[in-house]
């Protein structure tokens, strides 16, 4: 009997030795998050991703495994992030005629928007007395995660704090775009898509695809241009100040 209990208590560690358990947990939490999100009547301040992340954190905390065990397994799933980014070429190509017609206004407004997205947060945090490593983790908050992780590393920020900042920014941007575009009476899907992509990175882009293909394509465009622009400019500006 004791032998059997001992084997039972080792089970969670053995599950998480291979990536299967982490992947299953992630997918399970994802669908649970979507289910609960629908039951809660789709609150825009609490997207399915937040619910799912909290569920995963609770499961990991209640099992005798560490967050590193989970991360190791889940990194197999995150391998798909690369091909998924390349796949954004499809909506981008479909909207190419629209984008070509608008390249001038986009090129004029996008660098300013991307700069402001980083500056507001860094300035507010600096005024409130946040130290340099916190500022470095907040600066790339509007950039898609593969670029942002590289940037935070280069500036000396924290990886975990940056991922949290990405989630908070994504949620706030989705909520903000829907709320403010209603107040400003903006219904143009191109504009809403660009705003979601520039401010809300991949989370905003996913939301934009839910609103329609045009919004989604413009969000992918906004996300990739913001990423490219920030990746080049942010390290230069940062080293001027620090």
């Amino acid at each position: 009997m004791n032998d059997w209990l001992a084997r039972l208590s080792q089970l969670p560690q053995q599950w998480f030795e291979s990536p299967i358990a982490a992947i299953a947990l992630t997918l399970g939490a994802y669908f649970f998050g979507i289910r609960l999100f629908k039951l809660m009547r789709r609150p825009s301040w609490c997207p399915p991703m937040l619910i799912a992340a909290i569920v995963i954190a609770m499961v990991v905390a209640s099992l005798p495994i560490g967050i590193d065990d989970y991360n190791r397994g889940a990194s197999w799933l995150m391998l798909l992030l690369g091909p998924a980014t390349v796949a954004l070429a499809v909506p981008l190509y479909q909207q190419l005629p629209q984008i070509r017609a608008l390249w001038k206004p986009i090129l004029m407004t996008l660098p300013l928007s991307a700069t402001l997205a980083a500056c507001y947060a860094v300035i507010i945090a600096a005024i409130m007395g946040a130290p340099k490593d916190v500022l470095a983790s907040l600066a790339p908050k509007s950039v898609t995660s593969p670029i942002a992780l590289g940037l935070a590393e280069e500036l000396g920020g924290s990886r975990a704090l940056l991922m949290g900042a990405l989630l908070t920014t994504g949620i706030t941007a989705i909520f903000g775009v829907e709320w403010l575009s209603r107040i400003l009476r903006i219904r143009d899907p191109r504009l809403i898509g660009l705003a979601l992509g520039i401010n809300g990175h991949a989370l905003g882009t996913v939301r934009a695809f839910e609103l329609g293909t045009v919004a989604g394509a413009f969000a992918s465009l906004g996300m990739s241009l913001t990423g490219a622009f920030t990746a080049i400019v942010l390290p230069l500006v940062w080293h001027l100040f620090y």
């Binding site: 982490a22 992630t26 997918l27 939490a29 994802y30 997207p47 399915p48 991703m49 799912a52 992340a53 909290i54 995963i56 954190a57 990991v60 905390a61 967050i67 989970y70 991360n71 889940a74 990194s75 799933l77 995150m78 798909l80 992030l81 998924a84 507001y120 947060a121 860094v122 507010i124 945090a125 409130m128 007395g129 946040a130 130290p131 916190v134 907040l138 908050k141 995660s145 924290s158 990886r159 975990a160 704090l161 991922m163 949290g164 900042a165 990405l166 989630l167 908070t168 920014t169 706030t172 991949a202 989370l203 996913v206």
Partner: peptide
């Protein structure tokens, strides 16, 4: 969106590292 989620989970485990910074971080974000 699913692919970003696993990276986010870690923040709940390192939250106390930034305990005195939360007000600044959340306001800024």
């Amino acid at each position: 969106a699913l692919l970003i989620m696993p990276g986010v989970v870690e923040i709940f485990f390192v939250a106390d590292q930034f305990a005195d910074q939360w007000a600044a971080i959340l306001t800024a974000l």
